[in-house]
């Protein structure tokens, strides 16, 4: 289900669901926390061994794995904490200042 929350902060009191329910679980994805980043992770395919430890250690569910393979960073939500880079046993992830050259 998609619950339309456009302009929710300006709704009339009548429009909110009863009991302050949030009607769409997981709609936090519409909120981009990527802007919090000061450092951005970069991934080196050649070094990656596909252990997926970065994926299971990310606090922001921001490492996307497809068909059991490292796929991408979700830069919309990645906060740039650097945990993935730190835990990677193969040194396949490095952190770079946001906005700089990658």
């Amino acid at each position: 289900m998609k619950w339309n929350i456009k302009d929710a902060e300006h709704w009339s009191w009548k429009k909110y669901p009863e009991g302050a329910l949030i009607l769409e679980g997981g709609n936090a994805t519409y909120y981009k926390t990527g802007g919090w980043r000061t450092d951005k992770p970069a991934w080196d395919e050649k070094k990656c061994t596909q252990c997926l430890i970065c994926w299971i250690s990310c606090p922001d569910s921001s490492i996307i794995v497809k068909d059991e393979k490292w796929d991408s960073f979700d830069y919309d939500h990645c906060k740039g904490c650097g945990i993935c880079a730190k835990v990677c046993p193969a040194d396949a992830i490095s952190m770079h200042p946001e906005g700089g050259e990658e």
Partner: peptide
């Protein structure tokens, strides 16, 4: 899934 008991800031 619905979420019961969210955190409501002054806007809500």
């Amino acid at each position: 899934p619905v979420t019961f008991g969210p955190f409501a800031m002054p806007a809500f």
